[in-house]
Nucleic acid binder design. Structure first.
Length: 876
DNA sequence: ATATTGCATGATCTA
DNA sequence: AGATCATGCAATATT
């Protein structure tokens, strides 16, 4: 073979250099092919063992013997793969007339023709479904030397219904990359060149396999075709496979194929299927994700499917924009907690790092410039750590970028390369943006619903579905999806919790705090009492809030408030009474308020537009609430974000309804900004004493309320006891107060013991608390919860307010605490009484002139109130 | 006190 | 069993 295709090996001048130079000694794992015609480095396009051994390559036309140059392949020469073995250059193909080369201009990027399109192949072999559109940019035509059933040798795995068919995971040696983006490159970038390196005798970088199908006819001739899915942007016929579960796939592949040399064509459902499935909505299809085997892979270490890029064509198009550049998806990674953490280190999969990033020999690595989707260029340090005789690759300094993209653990970063520039691109995908197949079921989008139905009905002839369905008989696709979710969520969380998490759990974990707010509901038992403090009405519940299902509250012009909830079965939105406490799961059958819509079969009350309006309004409100939580509902209203002045009562459109606003403090309801609801779960986030944020103000108000209620309770008790018996005031009280104050107990206990406690009769609860000094303040509970049985209140809130607003000394004097003041002043400084004074004054008057010490006490109190049930009384 | 860095450990995955 | 990788942690640097 006088091949004119250069197989020169190239290597780098040094390990840190990205320059490939001819003639340098080759290091293991580093070489490239260079076309001696055009001088470009190139990769093997298709590697097929029909034609040649794996290590000789595919270099010349079988018919005429002319070399097949990389440039030729990329730009002009279309090839014919001959079933009989070999390849025809385009000239021979044309002259032979065997192939009716349906030359698609888009096929330039591939430069290969086969005698039949994949769809045609499939249609003749198995299901008869045409899939001619699968390779609109990679049109393959396979020439058949013989007219009979040659195409059967090239079944597409996903179209192969034969149970002997397999989804094959090719062995590395058998795989050949066919990166569209690569082919057309005239000059490989540094990184391209990196990727070109290979240590394998196949002379090529390879992909992890795509899907293969075993020859159902047991042909002795085995064909391996692996075609990368790096379709250039603009391909509207993306692969509507939804996030295959890699592991399932791999297992299926390996278990079935196990070394067999099968066809390796990526699964693409037929157009007909797509059309039947969801109206051939290209825009939608193009957004569905498929795990694409990377355009380049590693030789010795396959790239794990979990890192296969799942970028959609639409995203590719967005990335590439109007440029002529080709975006080559490389890999992606789900961010772990440590990746997304503040440490700023993104652990790179070793295989990916070594395959796509420049080689580094020193741990210090290299600075790597990566452009994000906004066009902003980031420079990260690409480096590694020695680790167990191996390397651990990391990108350092990613925090700004991660933050810029607002990524969190569980989100996905994608790495692509723009060819021919070779520029590295970094994209991202929020965890919630993945559309698992599971979510298609019952989706509000009828197209997705349709997709789901078709998937389950078997209409979708995708191999993965078929195989799984075939195995389980129960539509394994959603299971695979679920498992995928599991896998994706696996790495979220601490190391010790690195367990498989059920998708439901994962869903919960992905809930933001704000979202969790929407699920908090008032306790089911008991009615709240309303307290007005400083023109604010507060609803007080005796029980802590409970979790319920998320719903949207609306209000009508009449003031009637409603609640909208989504059925967990049919996902329709139903109207419910405002005060109904939704359980975590709720379905239409439980809609006892509307007999017409107490079944999932009942039509939506809301039209599409209405629903959108409702959701949008809710979203807007949330957004605004998050951003400006301190603003009142009135402000929202005035800002036009909340429409409380809608049309008449009978208006049914959600657009005419509005997200409910109330002057009452909507405690533990959506929008609640109370101390419990607003505080982050961890209780972190310290507030300065002078802070007037919503949290602190709420804390202060709550504290004031608490104090008033304490007093009220004690007054009641006092009155009650006074009626019952004659009490002898003895010295015991002084002793008790003294001991309490010396313990540094706060005002609550002091009041309980001395001021409010019935004299001569100990309140066991208070005493116990006082003695231990560890009373816990539960803001979710009614302050006198333990005394509910004491009866209804007879003390007006206004009087209590006045009471609470009196100066502290007056307050103390009125309650017989004068001696305590002096005692405290005489005792050890800031403990006890000054704290009492400060807190009292602070809370009651919010005196801006509080001493720092007092503020500090306040702050401590704040924190404890905010974050935990720890004792607020222990001064130590 | 806090942040950063480099490495070690061990859970998990894969062959 | 070996490889991978998420994360813990100690040492060091910085504020």
């Amino acid at each position: 073979m006088a091949s004119q295709v250069c197989m020169n090996n190239l290597c780098r001048a040094s390990s840190s250099s990205t320059d490939w130079k001819k003639g340098w000694p080759l290091r293991s794992g580093e070489f490239a092919n260079l076309c001696d015609k055009c001088g470009n480095a190139y990769e093997q396009l298709v590697f097929c063992d029909i034609f040649h051994s794996k290590d000789t390559g595919w270099r010349e036309c079988t018919s005429c013997g002319k070399p097949l140059h990389c440039g030729c392949i990329a730009s002009s020469s279309l090839l014919e793969l001959l079933d009989s073995g070999g390849v025809n250059c385009i000239s021979c193909a044309k002259s032979s007339g065997v192939c009716t080369a349906k030359t698609d201009e888009k096929a330039k990027g591939l430069g290969i023709t086969m005698s039949k399109t994949v769809g045609e192949i499939q249609s003749t072999s198995v299901s008869g479904q045409v899939n001619g559109g699968n390779f609109d940019k990679m049109k393959l035509k396979q020439c058949s030397d013989s007219a009979e059933n040659n195409g059967q040798k090239h079944l597409l795995p996903y179209q192969n219904n034969d149970t002997n068919g397999s989804i094959g995971q090719m062995k590395q040696e058998e795989e050949v990359s066919l990166p569209v983006g690569e082919i057309g490159s005239t000059r490989l970038s540094n990184f391209n060149q990196t990727s070109i390196r290979s240590s394998h005798t196949s002379d090529i970088d390879i992909y992890k396999s795509s899907f293969g199908a075993k020859d159902v006819h047991g042909s002795l001739v085995q064909t391996n075709l692996t075609i990368a899915l790096s379709a250039p942007s603009g391909n509207s016929n993306a692969f509507p496979v939804v996030v295959f579960e890699e592991r399932e796939l791999s297992k299926a592949i390996s278990s079935i194929q196990q070394g067999s040399r099968s066809r390796h064509l990526l699964p693409k459902p037929s157009k007909s299927v797509l059309a039947a499935g969801f109206g051939a909505n290209d825009s939608m299809i193009s957004q569905i994700r498929v795990a694409r085997p990377p355009v380049e892979g590693r030789v010795k270490n396959q790239l794990l499917p979990r890192y296969w890029p799942r970028i959609t064509d639409q995203e590719l198009q967005q990335i590439s924009g109007d440029s002529n550049s080709t975006i080559v998806p490389l890999f992606e990674k789900v961010l772990s907690a440590s990746d997304a953490g503040r440490i700023g280190r993104l652990v790179l999969p070793k295989a990916c790092a070594e395959a796509y990033f420049p080689p580094i020999s020193q741990p210090e690595g290299l600075p790597l410039m990566i452009q994000d989707v906004k066009g902003k260029e980031w420079v990260f340090q690409f480096r590694f750590w020695p680790n167990n005789n191996s390397r651990m690759y990391v990108l350092e300094g990613v925090t700004p970028c991660i933050q810029s993209m607002q990524l969190r653990a569980g989100d996905t970063v994608t790495f692509s390369r723009m060819d021919p520039e070779g520029k590295l691109l970094m994209g991202f995908r929020k965890a919630s943006s993945t559309i698992p197949m599971q979510s298609l079921k019952g989706s509000t989008d009828p197209r997705l619903n349709a997709l789901w139905k078709h998937a389950n009905s078997g209409d979708l002839n995708w191999p993965i579905t078929e195989k799984h369905v075939g195995k389980t008989g129960d539509g394994l696709m959603p299971l695979a999806m679920l498992d995928s979710e599991r896998k994706r969520s696996r790495n979220i969380g601490s190391k010790s919790k690195r367990l498989l998490i059920d998708s439901q759990d994962a869903l919960e974990l992905k809930l933001s705090w704000e979202e969790a707010q929407d699920m908090l509901r008032p306790p089911p038992s008991g009615k709240p009492s309303t307290v007005t403090i400083e023109d604010h009405e507060f609803e007080e519940y005796e029980e802590p809030p409970v979790f319920g299902k998320m719903s949207i509250f609306t209000a009508r012009l009449s003031g009637q408030q409603e609640q909208w909830a989504q059925c967990d079965n049919c996902y329709k939105w139903r109207r419910l009474p405002e005060d109904f406490l939704l359980p975590p799961r709720w379905t239409c059958e439980e809609n006892v308020w509307d007999q017409r819509r107490c079944s999932c079969s009942a039509a939506d009350e809301l039209g599409h537009w209405e629903l959108e309006n409702l959701l949008k309004m809710n979203k807007d409100l949330k957004k605004h609430r998050t951003g400006t939580s301190h603003r009142s509902a009135q402000e929202l209203e005035s800002a036009g974000l909340v429409n409380t002045t809608t049309v008449g009562d009978d208006v049914r459109e959600p657009g005419a309804t509005s997200v409910a606003t109330t002057t009452k403090h909507p405690r533990h309801r959506p929008g609640c900004s109370c101390i419990v609801c607003i505080q982050p779960p961890s209780g972190k986030g310290k507030h300065k004493p002078t802070c007037t944020c919503n949290v602190c103000m709420t804390v202060k108000r709550r504290f004031k309320t608490l104090m008033m209620r304490k007093k009220k309770r004690q007054s009641e008790r006092e009155a009650e006891i006074a009626q019952r018996s004659q009490i002898i005031w003895g010295p015991k009280e002084e002793v008790e107060v003294d001991s309490i104050s010396r313990q540094g107990t706060s005002q609550i206990e002091i009041r309980s013991a001395s001021e409010l406690q019935p004299r001569g009769q100990s309140n066991s609860q208070s005493q116990k608390v006082s003695e231990t000094g560890k009373e816990q303040l539960d803001l979710n509970c009614h302050p006198d919860r333990e005394d509910v049985q004491t009866g209804s209140t007879h003390v007006s809130m206004m009087s209590l307010l006045q009471e609470a607003s009196r100066p502290l000394d007056t307050y103390l004097k009125r309650n017989g605490l004068t001696s305590l003041i002096y005692e405290q002043q005489a005792s050890s400084g800031s403990l006890g009484m000054p704290q009492v004074t400060g807190e009292s004054e602070g809370w009651l008057h919010e005196d801006p002139c509080l001493t720092p010490a007092i503020h500090e006490q306040e702050r401590e109190g704040d924190e404890e109130l905010c974050g935990s049930n720890k004792s607020q009384n222990d001064p130590s």
